[in-house]
């Protein structure tokens, strides 16, 4: 996967360190990916159950 290279972060003035905000954002984004996929799966499965009524 492609990664970015930033110059500004939540520790302004100390660009060489890992930004505090990114330390939160990475696990939070991974959690969001999981929640989004679970929610979409729930929606698609619920909808497909209805779709079977059309051809069932």
């Amino acid at each position: 996967m492609t990664t970015g290279a930033g110059t500004r972060n939540d520790n302004p003035g100390d660009p060489g360190t890992t930004p505090r905000g990114d330390a939160v954002a990475v696990p939070l984004s991974l959690l969001l990916w999981a929640l989004v996929l679970i929610a979409l799966a729930y929606g698609v499965i619920s909808t497909l159950q209805k779709v079977t009524q059309l051809f069932g």
Binding site: D22, L30, V36
Partner: peptide
């Protein structure tokens, strides 16, 4: 906006779930 600039090595695929959380 200034406080949300990604740091070095930030993976761009970490942004879409934020967008999806809003749009969903």
């Amino acid at each position: 906006r200034d406080r949300s600039v990604a740091g070095p090595g930030y993976n761009r695929w970490l942004f879409p779930p934020a967008a999806l959380a809003v749009h969903l």
